[in-house]
């Protein structure tokens, strides 16, 4: 890699880590000018910075305010690059429906997970907060969603999660389900029939990717085979 390219990509990563949006925009503009491949700008520059941010989060060096600003910085950089990307093929993207279960309006955790999954290449449908149970089921069904993410910060709404999961399963929708939020434990997630549990936003990406690793049939088709795979895994 030539020295200049190396320097620009590092600058992009560093801008994300340091929450410096103007610097990210400047570096991304320079990268485009120097004809660096747009995908490389994102993967080896901005997203590499975000990976480091995730690490810092896991090490308790960074907390929620920092993560939010790093993600904003990364997105500011991506906006510069976006017009130069080839028309995106969204067909292969996994569709994720995400929301905070009814009774709870705390959406900070959900927003973090959304940002992380978005950056990791998932296609996100955000239902917001205080979401009625049926809305999850309907949206997952309509979109043929691959993954439904349910979040809550309050113990009082944990029951609602179980209701949503049961309703999704009863409706014959084969979306996988991931849950998380302050009061949720892995044991609880398992008991209510979730496919995955993540303790924080950084882990959510790993878990979400993991959920689709061993499945070779496209998840958007409801085949009996898939239902069997799902049963075997759960």
């Amino acid at each position: 890699m030539d020295a200049n390219k190396h320097k620009i990509l590092n600058d992009l990563a560093q801008a994300v880590i340091e929450m410096d949006a103007p610097r990210a925009v400047k570096a991304a503009t320079e990268a485009i000018y120097c004809k660096i491949d747009p995908y490389e700008i994102i993967t080896d520059g901005l997203a590499r910075g975000m990976d480091k941010v995730n690490e810092l989060f896991e090490q308790e060096e960074y907390f929620v305010p920092e993560i939010l600003l790093c993600a904003d910085t990364m997105n500011a950089g991506i906006e510069v690059v976006r017009p130069h990307l080839p028309k995106e093929n969204t067909r292969d993207k996994k569709k994720v429906v995400i929301g905070v279960v009814k009774g709870d309006t705390h959406d900070i955790g959900k927003n973090l997970v959304k940002i992380m999954l978005d950056n990791a290449g998932f296609e996100i449908y955000d239902l917001g907060r205080n979401v009625p149970y049926a809305k999850f089921v309907d949206t997952a069904g309509e979109l043929n969603a691959d993954l439904v993410c349910l979040s809550t910060l309050m113990t009082t709404t944990m029951d609602g999660m179980q209701v949503v999961i049961e309703d999704i399963k009863n409706a014959g929708i084969v979306s996988r389900i991931m849950v998380g939020g302050g009061p949720i434990s892995p044991g609880f997630a398992k008991r209510i029939g979730a496919d995955g549990y993540a303790k924080n936003a950084a882990e959510a990406v790993k878990v979400a990717k993991g959920l689709f690793q061993n499945i070779h049939v496209p998840l958007t088709f409801k085949t009996p085979e898939l239902v069997r795979v799902r049963k075997k895994n759960s």
Binding site: M19, V64, P65, E66, L68, L69, D72, D107, I108
Partner: peptide, 16 residues
Amino acid sequence: ATSLIDATALYKALRQ
């Protein structure tokens, strides 16, 4: 404060 303004905006403002 997080009941008066979107929590995301508030958390960012802590630094900005």
